[in-house]
């Protein structure tokens, strides 16, 4: 990092001065102020912390879990929370704490897979529509609107029902309903970038459409798309849990949180912990993603600035 030695600024001053002398300094300043803002946002930090914990729990699930998540012990069915079973046991005597720990893998699996599918699809559709405009734009956006004109859970339900119940099909179903907002965002970004001078310069140098989309527009769209996907993650978690609750997500005996809540319904009046625990896990994780996404947005949104 070249600090502007002419004025003998310290790094901190260089990052905060009003007199920006080059592009790199502007970028560093933006990151600096964003990071300061992010660190001053306790809620976003809490969200981040929960997500980190979730990742660790999922990674080290076998070490953290106290029991085998699938091991049944009918003699110990519906035990209340205790030292032996932190969150109690379910109707088949399975340890709920261990099931929630292993369930974090399913939740992360769904969130990651949906995001990985949705990002490229949404960006491809949105960037194509935004860059080429005209009829391409009209047709692609009309299709996007049709997908958007269903509440996401209902459309996911229809897809999941059509494809048959199961974890992979739930992922596909959610992905099919989650790409349109990404596409609209990518389109909007592309349309503002398209008319820039540097795009015109690249075109004059002979760059084809594909090259411009890949090397010029894609990198500029990426940050806002990533923020948007992060914000979507809470929704993805809730939709997945809803599908699991209705029996269309991961199938028993997999410890999916929504399905666990659903299975506990019959026993909840006598054994509150059977539904309370997995549901709380869903709430905490989806809240964490919302908090983090909100903070990340402030952090990356250039309009917010300092």
């Amino acid at each position: 990092m070249t600090v502007d030695t002419r004025q003998n600024l310290t790094l901190r001053q260089w990052m905060t001065t009003e007199e920006v002398t080059n592009g790199r300094q502007a970028f560093v300043q933006k990151v600096y102020w964003g990071a300061v803002g992010f660190l001053q946002n306790p809620l976003a930090l809490i969200g981040l912390a929960v997500i980190v914990v979730l990742l660790l729990v999922a990674a080290f699930a076998p070490l953290i879990a106290t029991h085998d998540p699938l091991a049944q012990d009918l003699g110990a069915a519906l035990q209340p929370p205790s030292a032996a079973h932190y969150f109690g046991t379910d109707e088949l005597g399975r340890d709920i704490f261990s099931r929630i720990v292993f369930g974090s893998r399913i939740t992360l699996y769904i969130v990651m897979l949906v995001s990985v599918i949705v990002g490229p699809i949404g960006m491809a559709v949105g960037m194509t529509a935004g860059y080429f405009g005209g009829w391409t734009d009209k047709v692609l956006m009309r299709v996007t609107d049709i997908f958007l004109s269903f509440p996401s859970l209902v459309l996911a339900l229809a897809f999941a029902a059509a494809l048959g119940p199961g974890l992979e099909n739930a992922v596909i179903a959610i992905a099919l309903t989650a790409w349109p907002p990404i596409a609209r965002l990518a389109r909007a970004e592309t349309m503002t970038i398209r008319s820039s001078d540097f795009i015109a310069a690249a075109t004059l140098q002979g760059a084809g459409s594909i090259r411009i989309l890949r090397h010029y527009i894609f990198p500029l769209c990426l940050p806002s798309v990533i923020v948007r996907i992060t914000l979507n993650m809470a929704g993805i978690i809730l939709t997945a849990a809803g599908l699991g609750f209705l029996g269309l997500g991961a199938q028993p005996p997999a410890p999916e949180w929504g399905a666990m809540t659903s299975a506990g319904r019959r026993f909840m009046l006598d054994s509150w912990w059977v539904v309370t625990m997995p549901g709380s896990a869903i709430l905490i994780v989806s809240l964490a993603f919302n908090l983090f996404g909100d903070g990340l947005r402030d952090f990356l949104d250039p309009r917010h600035g300092r």
Binding site: M268, S286, F289
Partner: peptide, 25 residues
């Protein structure tokens, strides 16, 4: 803001079950 965020993040089916345990049972 925090409360509304919680409202936004809560699985509605779970809230329903908790409501039944609390206000019905």
């Amino acid at each position: 803001r925090f409360l509304t965020l919680i409202g936004y993040s809560t699985p509605v089916f779970w809230l329903g079950l908790i409501g039944l345990i609390l206000f019905y049972a």
